[in-house]
Computed example of a mutant assay.
Amino acid sequence: MLVADVMLNLSQSKKKGLSLEEKRTRMMEIFFETKDVFQLKDIEKIAPKTKGITPMSVKDVLQSLVDDNMVDCERVGTSNYYWAFPSKALNTCKHKLEELQTQISEAKQRKVSVQKAVEKATVGREDTEERGALLKELQALKEERTRLQAELEKYRECDPEVIEDMRKSNVVAKEAVSRWTDNVFAIKSWTKKKFSFDDSRIDKAFGIPEDFDYMD
């Protein structure tokens, strides 16, 4: 029965194709079983035949193992050589396990801290009748404040500060009008002397109304 199950699993693996993790595991078996040093071309020959790893994926799988420090790689001359021993893999696994255990421990500590913070924050916020009444009163006060602010906005024009700002703005506007009036009068005088135009002709050219009073 056990042999039949193994054969069935192998058959299913061939049909579905190997996952990346399965390919990595099988490639590590090559190094552990042979305890030898290989070049890439050697692995590309061995892996498809003995472990069912597709030739196109051999290089990527091998590089992923090197990146994870599970397979050693060293360049000698123009060639790269790869090897991995069970003792190194065991140490790597132990180191990874220690890292994960540390992360789990830190996560547990953070969880405890968060739980304490939540418990502290909920003190005094229990759903009691008194708290419900206070929340209703708070909401009513907020609505009253909004209403009063809207009411106050209606009388903003009577605000002494607003009136003072308007007065200052009027003074500035009046001074600006006076400057432009002086400018127009100066240009009119210059044009009258330069071209001997009469006032009505100059006023018409500048679009000045006939009843415009320069002294206003």
Score class of each variant (00 low, 15 high):
D60A: 15
V61I: 13
V61E: 10
L62G: 10
L62C: 14
Q63P: 04
Q63L: 09
Q63D: 07
Q63C: 01
S64K: 10
S64F: 03
S64T: 14
S64C: 01
S64G: 02
S64R: 06
L65W: 01
L65M: 00
L65F: 01
L65Q: 02
V66G: 00
D67Q: 01
D68M: 14
D68W: 09
N69D: 14
N69L: 04
N69E: 08
N69R: 07
M70V: 09
M70H: 03
M70E: 13
V71H: 05
V71M: 04
D72M: 11
D72E: 14
D72S: 12
D72F: 12
C73R: 10
E74S: 05
R75F: 05
V76H: 00
V76K: 04
G77F: 12
G77C: 04
S79P: 08
S79F: 11
S79Q: 15
N80S: 08
Y81H: 14
Y81D: 12
Y82V: 01
Y82S: 00
Y82C: 01
W83L: 12
W83M: 06
W83S: 07
A84H: 13
A84S: 15
A84I: 11
S87M: 15
S87I: 15
S87R: 14
K88Y: 12
K88C: 12
K88M: 14
A89P: 07
L90F: 14
N91L: 14
N91F: 13
T92N: 14
T92Y: 15
T92M: 15
C93P: 03
K94T: 02
H95E: 13
H95D: 15
K96V: 05
L97P: 09
L97M: 09
L97Q: 05
E99V: 11
L100E: 08
Q101E: 06
T102K: 12
T102W: 08
Q103H: 13
I104K: 03
S105D: 08
S105K: 12
S105E: 12
E106Q: 13
E106H: 14
A107M: 10
K108Q: 11
K108H: 06
K108V: 05
Q109W: 07
Q109T: 15
R110F: 10
R110E: 09
S113L: 14
S113I: 07
S113T: 08
V114I: 15
K116A: 08
K116M: 09
A117V: 05
E119D: 12
K120Y: 10
K120P: 04
A121Y: 10
T122H: 06
V123S: 03
E126L: 03
E126R: 02
D127V: 00
D127W: 01
T128G: 02
T128H: 01
T128M: 03
E130R: 00
G132R: 03
G132I: 00
G132D: 00
L134T: 02
L135Y: 05
E137N: 04
E137D: 07
L138P: 00
A140S: 08
A140R: 09
A140Y: 03
L141H: 08
L141N: 00
K142D: 05
K142I: 03
E143F: 04
E144H: 00
E144W: 05
T146P: 00
T146I: 03
T146L: 01
R147H: 07
A150I: 02
E151H: 04
E151C: 06
E153W: 03
Y155H: 07
Y155S: 02
R156L: 08
R156G: 05
E157Y: 06
C158R: 10
C158T: 07
C158G: 08
